[in-house]
Each structure stands twice: as C-alpha cells, then as structure tokens.
Simulated scan of single mutants.
Amino acid sequence: MTTITNHENKYRLTKRITCARMVKIALQFKANLENVTDFHIESFDDFIWYLKLECTKCHTPSDTYHDINLRQLSSNLNIEPSKPSMNYTSDDADNHTFKTVVIFDCRGIEPIDWQPGDGWACQGVESGTKFSKIDLSENKEWMDYDEKAKEAVTINELEFKFVKVK
C-alpha cells in the first residue's frame, strides 16, 4: 500500500485515491532580496518539501506538515520530471514577480500550505560572495553580512501561492 505520512504518523493517504484525476499544481514564490541575487534551491534532489496536504475527495486537510523529498514521493504526489532551474534574481524581486519553483503532479491530494525550510542559496550582488545552507524556517526570512561588500544581506517578505497549470 502506498502512503504519504508525516513524521508523527497522524495523517495517511492511501493508494485507494490514486484513481483520482491528475492535477498539476505549481508552487510559485516571490521575495524581497537586499544585496543578493540568484536565490535558489541548493540541491533539488535532496531538498525537503514541507507541505500541508488536503484530500480532494473528502476535503480533509492535514494538520501538520509532511516532510517529503524526491525519494519519498508516491503515486499520489510527484514532482514533474522537468525540474525548473529556478533562480530568483534581484530583477525579479524589483519587479515583484512570482516565479515557479516546482510543479507537483497530484492525484487525490493537493498541497494547501508550504514552509520553505532550509537548503537555499544565493550570492552577493556586488561581491559574488556565495551564501549556502540558508534556512528560511523561522519567519520565512534570512539575514547575514557580506564581508567582501561590507553590507548586510537579506531575504524577506517571502510570499507563495499554488497555481493549477495545464
């Protein structure tokens, strides 16, 4: 039996609902970048997706976040094979542009909430300093200091949305 469970094993979705129609849902986000650019997922294959899911048949949402990576996906939730190589740049931030991070193939379940977690990276606009292992778990923001450029660097005001795609 295929299941998706959270780490507390409170919420289960079984293979019985895989006969549901497949829906593609894109996770898009935008953020404010200060003195950094090329904001992206550091390693797509190892990235943990923290998602709250809802059963589309019974409309029962999960009450906790599921921590799912590429190796744990099932026939109910999968990542579209063509992984976007998404870099959110300072130009995108200046234009308040939403960009697609990932597209999920969903059968019988849909994501309803997302926490960005850790595993992000970016670089200084002026210095090119690489910042890795960025953790956005707390308040969906990050701050550091770029020694080469002698300025504060920040990612904040992170917003996201789920969009159905064809």
Rank of each mutant, 00 (worst) to 15 (best):
T14I: 07
D46W: 05
S43G: 08
G124C: 14
V102G: 04
S127R: 04
K166C: 14
I68M: 03
K166N: 13
L136F: 10
T60F: 12
D135K: 06
N76C: 14
H59L: 15
K148E: 12
H7K: 11
E151Y: 09
I48R: 07
T18V: 14
E151I: 09
K15N: 15
N32S: 08
P111C: 05
H66D: 07
Y65C: 03
K166D: 15
T18A: 13
S82N: 14
F160E: 00
N87T: 14
V125C: 05
I48S: 03
I155S: 00
T60C: 08
G119M: 01
E110P: 07
K24N: 14
P61G: 01
C55P: 01
I68V: 10
W142R: 05
D105C: 07
F47V: 00
S85C: 13
E8V: 15
K161Q: 10
E151M: 14
N156K: 08
L33K: 09
D146S: 00
Y145T: 08
I109P: 00
D45G: 08
N9F: 13
K140H: 12
I109G: 02
E34G: 05
Q115G: 12
A20R: 06
K99L: 09
S85H: 12
E8I: 11
G124H: 07
F98P: 01
R16W: 15
V23C: 06
D45W: 13
W49H: 03
S85L: 15
T3M: 13
N6F: 00
R107I: 03
S127A: 08
T56G: 06
H40P: 05
C106G: 01
I155A: 06
Y88A: 00
